[in-house]
Each structure stands twice: as C-alpha cells, then as structure tokens.
Amino acid sequence: MKYFKQICLFLLAITFFSCSSDDESRPSEYEFVKEYSTTVTVGGFVGIAQRNFQIGEVYKGTKQGNGTISIRIAEHSELNDDCPNSWCYQELLDVPQEFLKSVE
C-alpha cells in the first residue's frame, strides 16, 4: 500500500510538472505604435496589395522567437483550405516587435 501511494504521488507530480505555461504561444492583442507598410497576398484577380497599418490598430497575435510577432490579418475560410491556389489569401503576417506593443 505504501508503494502504491508513492507511485500515485510520483505520477501526479509528473503530470503537474509536464504542464507548462507557454504564454508565448497564446494569442494576445497587440497594438501598432508606429505606422507599418507591407505587401500582402489578397488572392483572386488582385493578387497582392500594399497594406498600411495605422497607429492604434489592434490585432491578435503570438510572439515568435526571432524578434517578430505574428498577427492575424484575416480569418480562415474555406477558400484557404486547399492552398496554394489562385484564391488563397494571407491570414498571418510577421511584424517586427518594434512596431507593436502588447495590449493589457
């Protein structure tokens, strides 16, 4: 019985410590603090377009390890399920951290 309790306690400890709080991968909200301009894929006949992000615009995103934040600029739809094709559009954009700040 003593060994059974120790094994249960050991398994509980392993389960507890294997759960990590990986805040980096959780989507957070980020606000632009500087104007940012880039080319994005919009799909269809248009293809690509110049996109200007203004100060104060807020997007959901996740921090990347290379000094960038990946923000979601479009929601996923059925058009993007079978990519690449001519109707695919860009859903995520990597932006340098200096242009964004975390919204609390």
Rank of each mutant, 00 (worst) to 15 (best):
F17W: 13
R26F: 12
L9P: 04
D22M: 10
K2C: 07
F45Q: 09
D81M: 06
E24D: 09
I71A: 01
F17H: 09
T15H: 03
G56W: 03
L9M: 12
S77M: 01
F32L: 02
F17S: 08
F32T: 02
R26K: 14
F45N: 13
N66T: 03
V103R: 10
T68N: 13
G56N: 03
G65N: 11
Y36N: 10
R72I: 13
G44L: 00
I69Q: 00
T38D: 11
S28G: 15
L79K: 15
V103Q: 11
K60A: 03
P27H: 08
E29R: 14
K101R: 15
D81I: 06
L11R: 02
I69R: 01
E91C: 07
A74E: 08
I55K: 13
V42R: 00
H76V: 06
S28K: 14
N66E: 00
E75M: 09
I7A: 15
V33A: 05
P84H: 10
L92D: 13
T15S: 15
K5M: 14
L100G: 00
Q64T: 11
I71T: 03
V95I: 12
E104C: 06
E91P: 00
E104G: 13
I55E: 06
N66F: 02
V42D: 13
T38L: 05
Q54F: 05
S86C: 08
Q97L: 10
F4G: 11
H76P: 05
E91K: 10
I73Q: 08
D82W: 09
C83K: 07
F45V: 10
F10M: 14
Y36L: 08
F32V: 01
I14E: 08
K5H: 10
L79I: 10
D94H: 08
G43S: 07
N85R: 02
A13T: 14
C19E: 14
S18A: 14
D94M: 06
T15I: 05
F53S: 04
L79S: 10
N80Y: 00
Y30G: 04
R72G: 06
D23M: 10
F4I: 13
S37T: 13
V40H: 02
E24F: 03
Y36W: 07
T15R: 02
P27F: 08
T38K: 01
Y3T: 12
G56H: 07
T38Q: 05
K34V: 02
D94N: 13
V95S: 01
V42H: 05
Y3I: 11
Q50N: 15
S20L: 09
Q90W: 01
C83D: 15
Q50D: 15
G47L: 06
S37C: 06
Q50F: 09
M1Q: 10
I69A: 00
P96M: 05
L9Y: 08
V58M: 01
C8H: 12
S70P: 03
I55C: 06
E78W: 12
N52W: 00
V42P: 01
